[in-house]
Design a binder for these strands. Structure first.
Length: 558
DNA sequence: TAGGTACCAG
């Protein structure tokens, strides 16, 4: 900002401060320093009697990121003033539209005006469609481009990553390298790291790290932070810690990434230690940091520490707790079996509890067999959002936990009436650089028969040492023997059986699952880690479970 | 004549 004031002062001194060229120069300087200089930029823009395309472009650009609605209002004003847009205008307008996820008619307008063949405009369109979730449109623009620059590839890869299509992002990155016309930079690699985080594939994680150093890419704070997060999501918190230790410069996001990683890996005490160490290094925690610390307390059963951290948000840091912090507290109390306290906490919340808060409480009811409370909580959820399949599964599990099969069947009927189906469990595993997908109850894998046979023999050998299949979590009221075989087909069991068949050495088995692991599978994995002398790491929807020598890192507290 | 797009991490 200082250089703008100096420039303005010089213009005032020489009497050129109202000269159109001087105003343009000032406006440009302000636009380059956005968002700090936005109000100043607006006042200069207002001084220009007849703003031309360049002036409009500059002011639209300056607001595209931080005040996208204002950018769009300026674009309308531009049209009303009869000032024509040019090929510079649209990338800025598209950026604003991407932020607001609006403006689907823009493509036809710029097509009509003949700006659709400009690479910057096309890149803007890819980014815009990607942000709005219209991947097909983004891909169409990308594929039809006669020439692509680094930003075109980067935009399309980011589109895939942002929308959860990890493999597609990686495949495109590979295609880009095969085409070989552009050289990857730190920006594009950040999207690739994010794609690998979605997949949770450690082999790929190690590869991208090597790629970064082989290609001499600058190890920026954001790239380092993304790697800390990625390794944690790939199930290797040790590697996250190594990257963290090697980073010369860190910021609050880096510390938070590590704290969150430690929390979901069940290393609660270390997460708390890092939180206090971070403060000693002079970094102020933000809302995300607090969420990580509270998750650590919750998963570690650290009730009093959790209370202390929660209260410090307001008392020490002067921040207002967000709904997710209240959610963490409900989880903390509920997990610890303090259901009455959890209810009191929800009743005393200064904000209206959302369905997530109630759902958290419902989960606690399942873990501690609080049937009446679960029924009341489910009613509360129904008032807010009655179509969430997971809630029915939880309620069904409460009834199953105490053998109330008639009520359990009632839950099934109610799901049928509302046409709600249970999302199938799905587990992924990397075997010899190939990802295998297992879906509960699905026998499409080419080696399904041998996997199933091996799984049956596994279950038999685990039963010998004390494993008893727990049938209470099976959703429907079916015969006992059938229930047992339904459990036998849970996707994570199939994935682990497959890994044991494939891996002849003693390497760690790593599985990624879309839903929470059930009690029976959790018990099965503990026995399997002992009997087969294997470390098994499962990433479920909430956290990581490290099974080793008959026990789990979550200490059965998840 | 100037001005441009992607990533922006937790």
């Amino acid at each position: 900002m200082n250089h703008i004031y100096k420039l303005h002062a010089r213009l005032l001194k020489t009497g050129h401060h109202n000269h159109p060229l001087a105003l343009r120069r000032l406006l440009l300087s302000c636009a380059a320093s956005a968002p700090a200089s936005l109000s100043y930029a607006r006042s200069i823009f207002d001084l220009i009697a007849f703003p031309d395309t360049f002036a409009f472009n500059t002011i639209i650009r300056a607001h595209a990121d931080s005040s996208p609605s204002f950018s769009l209002s300026l674009f309308s004003k531009m049209a009303m003033a009869g000032v024509s847009p040019d090929h510079f205008t649209f990338p800025f307008v598209l950026k604003a539209c991407a932020r607001l996820q609006t403006g689907l008619d823009l493509h036809s307008l710029l097509f009509k005006l003949g700006f659709d063949s400009d690479v910057y405009v096309q890149n803007g369109l890819i980014h815009f469609y990607g942000c709005c979730g219209f991947l097909d449109f983004a891909l169409k623009v990308f594929e039809e481009m006669p020439e692509r620059d680094l930003v075109s590839w980067s935009s399309m890869i980011a589109c895939f990553a942002k929308n959860g299509f990890g493999y597609e992002a990686l495949a495109l990155f590979q295609r880009m390298q095969l085409v070989g016309t552009v050289k990857p930079d730190e920006v594009i690699v950040l999207s690739v790291v994010s794609a690998i985080s979605i997949l949770g594939d450690l082999e790929l994680g190690k590869w991208i790290r090597g790629f970064i150093s082989r290609n001499g890419l600058e190890f920026t704070v954001s790239l380092g932070t993304a790697l800390v997060d990625m390794f944690s999501r790939c199930g290797c918190i040790e590697e996250s810690m190594r990257v963290f230790d090697e980073m010369g410069e860190r910021n609050v996001l880096t510390w938070t990434a590590l704290i969150n990683g430690l929390a979901v890996h069940g290393r609660s005490a270390e997460a708390l230690r890092m939180f206090y160490e971070m403060r000693n290094h002079g970094f102020q925690p933000d809302h995300v940091t607090f969420t990580g610390v509270l998750v650590a307390c919750s998963h570690g059963g650290l009730v009093s520490e959790g209370w202390h951290v929660f209260e410090s948000i307001r008392n020490e840091y002067g921040m207002e707790p967000l709904p997710e912090h209240y959610g963490c507290m409900v989880d903390l109390l509920g997990r610890a079996g303090l259901l009455n306290e959890a209810c009191k906490f929800v009743d005393g919340m200064p904000i209206r509890p959302n369905s997530i808060i109630w759902r958290t409480l419902l989960g606690a009811c399942v873990n501690h067999n609080y049937i009446e409370l679960a029924e009341k909580v489910k009613e509360k959820i129904n008032e807010l959002d009655s179509y969430h399949d997971g809630d029915y599964v939880l309620l069904s599990n409460v009834y199953g936990g105490v053998g109330r099969w008639a009520e359990k069947a009632g839950v099934r009927n109610s799901m049928r009436e509302k046409r709600i189906s249970k999302k199938p469990g799905c587990s992924l595993i990397n075997v010899n650089h190939l990802i295998h997908e297992f879906v509960a109850g699905d026998n499409n894998h080419p080696q399904f028969e041998s996997i199933r046979e091996f799984l049956v023999s596994m279950i038999d050998s685990l039963k010998v040492v004390g494993y008893t299949p727990d049938i209470s979590n099976v959703l429907f009221d079916i015969e006992e023997e059938e229930k047992e075989s339904t459990l036998g087909y849970h996707s994570e069991k199939l994935a682990v059986a497959f890994a044991l068949l494939c891996f002849k050495d003693s390497r760690t088995i790593r599985v990624m699952k879309n839903l929470r692991i059930c009690h029976d599978c959790h018990c099965f994995m503990k026995y399997a880690s002992d009997v087969f002398e294997r470390e098994i790491i499962i990433r479920d929807r909430n956290r990581f479970h490290h099974f080793s020598k008959g026990s789990c890192s979550c200490r059965d507290y998840w």
